[in-house]
Computed example of a mutant assay.
Amino acid sequence: MRILILGGTSFVGRAIAEEALREGCDLTLFGRGRTGRELFPGVPRLLGDRDSGDCAALRGGSWDAVVDTSGYLPRQVGDATAALGDRVGRYLFLSSHAVYVREGVAPGSDESTPRRSPVRHVRRVEDLDDETYGPSKAACEDDVLARYGDRATIVRPGKVAGPHDPSDVFTSWVRRAARGGRVALPGDPEQPVQVVDSRDLARLAVRLLLDDRPGTFHAVGPAEPTTLGGLIRTCAAAAGTEVEIVPVPPEAAPPMFPLIRTDHAGQQRSAARARAAGLTATPLAVTAADVLAWDRARGEPPLRAGFSAAEEEHLLREAAGAGR
């Protein structure tokens, strides 16, 4: 199968490229050429920049399938699909759970959950925020479906975790748990959490293409339900340490603290349709161990997520004083 990946050298795209090559697919990558230049020697690369609307490199060639990992704005999707025309078979768009409404959702919700109203007014990726990211992705979904119909496939991942993750969200908990000891948690340790291993997401995407399967699919994990406290303890066990979770005031945390959410039902979505289509389930302990090994191999650079050591120590001292 000839697959074109829009992206393919950073995190999720990289995992999908690796999986496609393992399956013997004939791969082409499209991107700006700024990252991962050493990856995938021998794989053809088309250079362009979706942010600036430069998709000229897509005007030649044909592919059995396209995986869009880098479409965030409707104009980006429109530019790519206009350049590709009908020279592609299936178009798989990587969307997000952020497309869904946030109120009135029950645990176990499936892909029929109502979406937020699509928006098209955001012109630059850097202008997306919590209020517009999901609605912009919803508009992208609509455009892919309108253009390709039954040749469109939508995958909506939850929080993706794995090696090479640039977000630091899961990595911050892996690294903190590896230090062991008392861990400050500005949230409910019983809060449900769903993360999906990037390699499971990649296997699902490639399997959907190989099976030429249309539809919309949740990519969530792990297979066994877990909580935020359970995730932290699993990360500690993977590192061979022990932790004591210490609740601290939620207001002590900056906005969007790693994996802390108030919409608990949004962390309990059903993966039944994706599992039936081939979504695998890497154990959370394996994901944690692999992220820890990758993080240590890269030298554990400063993280942008979570508390600093000084911030956490201050909160832990306050918590100890309040408990006397």
Rank of each mutant, 00 (worst) to 15 (best):
D188L: 11
R182C: 11
D127S: 04
P186T: 01
R182Y: 01
V160S: 09
G149I: 10
A178P: 14
V122P: 06
S172P: 10
V174T: 12
P189G: 04
R176K: 12
P166I: 13
L128K: 00
F170T: 10
K159C: 13
Y148K: 00
D130L: 09
G162W: 10
R179F: 09
G149A: 14
V122T: 12
Y133E: 02
T153V: 14
A178H: 05
L145K: 04
R116N: 03
F170I: 13
E131W: 09
T132L: 04
I154N: 02
F170R: 05
A177K: 12
S167T: 15
Y133G: 03
Q191M: 15
D168M: 07
P157F: 05
D143G: 08
C140T: 06
A152Y: 02
V174G: 11
V119S: 02
G181V: 08
V160T: 13
S167C: 13
V122I: 13
R147Y: 01
Q191F: 13
P118Q: 09
Y133Q: 02
R120F: 04
A146D: 12
D130K: 05
L185Y: 05
R116I: 06
C140I: 08
V183K: 01
V183Y: 04
A152S: 07
A139N: 08
G162V: 14
T171C: 13
P189N: 02
R179Y: 09
D165S: 15
T153A: 15
P163V: 13
S136I: 01
G180P: 07
L128E: 05
E131S: 05
P186V: 00
A138C: 00
G181R: 10
L145N: 04
G187E: 00
A177W: 14
Y133H: 02
F170P: 10
G187D: 01
R175G: 07
R182S: 13
G162A: 11
P163A: 14
L145S: 02
A152C: 01
E141I: 02
E141M: 03
R176N: 10
D142Y: 00
G187A: 15
R175P: 09
P135C: 04
P189M: 05
V183E: 01
A177S: 12
